[in-house]
Design a protein around this nucleic acid. Sequence first.
RNA 1: CACCCCAUCGUCUAGUUGGCCUAGGACACAGGGUUUUCAUCCCUGCAACACGGGUUCGAAUCCCGUUGGGGUGACCA
Length: 574
Amino acid sequence: MQCASVKLKFLIKTIYNPCYCCAWLLYYLLKDFLQRFRMSTNDVRVRFAPSPTGQVHIGNIRTAIFNFLFARNQGGKFILRVEDTDIERSTPEAIAKLFEVMQWLKLEVDEEPVYQTSLAGAHLEAAEKLIAKGDAYKFAKGEGGEEATLYRIPIDVESLNFVRKVGAQSVALHPDKDFIAGPEGISYALISKKGKAVPLEACLAGFQNLKLFNEDNDCIFELVPNLEAILSGERFIIDAAVRAEYDRYEVFFDDLVKGQLAKPLDSMKDLVIVRSNGTPVFHLANVCDDASQAISHIIRGDDHVENTYRHIFLFHSLGYDVPKYAHLPMIVNASGKPYSKRDGDAFVGDFKAKGYIAQALFNYLTLLGWSPGDDREKMSLNEIIKAFDITRVKSAAAQMDMNKLFNLNGQYMEEMPFTDFYSKVADELAQYDWFDSENTGYNHQVAALLQSRTKLFSQVDAWKYFYSNEYELNAKLIRKNLSRDGVISALSALAEKLSSPEYFASKELLESIVAEIGEANGFANGKLNLPIRLTVSGSNSGADLYETLLLLGAECVSSRLARAAGILEMVSAE
RNA sequence: CACCCCAUCGUCUAGUUGGCCUAGGACACAGGGUUUUCAUCCCUGCAACACGGGUUCGAAUCCCGUUGGGGUGACCA
């Protein structure tokens, strides 16, 4: 693109030589037009490429979310590639789970999902192509083993625009260990601070213009003149070398979130691309698929940065453009360590099961490692898409904060349309035998009363007292509050009075009755509220007391209040 | 062990072209207020630039080092 622009500029300049001003103006207008054109025929394509081996991990789905957001923000395509080549571990159940989770979070893909197994033929073809080009070779490690196919990091690096020279290196070699140069690379040993040998291996490309010297400072080996022999299989073993001199080069790329990243070639090794059993390795498959699917931006976890240095070479050797990369920081557990299966709450399914709202989890995950730059936190999907900027993603790992997720979920819960809320709640309640799904009118009233104080769907287990007399009792609070002088007798008096339904005509009437009875028994206004609540619900928290009583009805309230003494006795006996 | 990466309140983060930062917001926590009760809401408080050098008139922001953490290291993805 840049090259084209320069050519264009030159062309226009030569045509309009007499008038540079016009040329410049025209150039900028054209450039602008080209940019707009490119925007409209967007070629941004990103993919989410999970291995379906069991549950969907929370960190994994975050990667999917960021890919999705990037695609939507850029007007590009979001693609799902199921990397199911691990036949042992990939199961149909896991794939179904993956779809379920993505659907739940509304991560809509723009093309039919692609299964990597269907692409496997191309991987081996690519390997053959690399061997034919001389960029890959067969090698068996150890004695008598089967040969695997290894990709050779290109030794001719000068023409590579993603490799640069860092400088001349001069390192001391450990005298006890041989310096070996063979077709599969170089093996040698450095000297540690304590004088011990530090064995190392690297690719041939890492040692440009290598020269080895002995104790007398005589050059005893040079790589370049022997390169041809080495590549055709010869192995040089130099035992008296004490120093190596070479030009160090490094691969580099601009990561959209981490900035420019680089790695010296002398710390890289040739890599296996086809196993000795003939199956392609992840690196090859991944690169081939990203190329064949024309992926423009690879957005993936932090744990892949090391792979990126190698994949860049593979893309190039296979004759493809290198895509742009963005490496997302990992999500860590409460103790700051990487999530493991044992941690709990590591899978998306756990959150769904606990009654979190998909949008809330989505919104929360979005805020892990990213922020819009202002103080907005609770945002609609459209707001997030509009604000999303991959370069604003942080490069440090983030911890899940269950409190904050819980709080955010509560906010979503509160503003959820009642009908949506009710249907979820009814589903959740269906699992309890005390729930009466037939009684829809009553159920609606209960749900309406409790919606604003529900932060998680699983909390509906506390609604039992609306349906059954066998509700949980907070023993400690009941002991404390019902044992006070006069409380039981006041509750009995109230029970008697409230046995007639006429007082349940309105909230106000009910309040006045309670106040009246309370006063008659020596309780100031409001002092009876907690004892009443504890008696009829077993808990000190809930909805507005009088609305609750109204819903429960005269018969229920009266009978529960009447057994206050029994309840107190029961919890005291414990 | 080698290489790569990261480092602001307990947690998520704002801060990114050095001065509007005696470091802002949110969650959590503590205290107070409104509400006869529950919840909501409001106010206040607590609390961080990992450490040590350097550059500079001035650094959370740039450079170096240390420490700590993470990733990767020939046939997992």
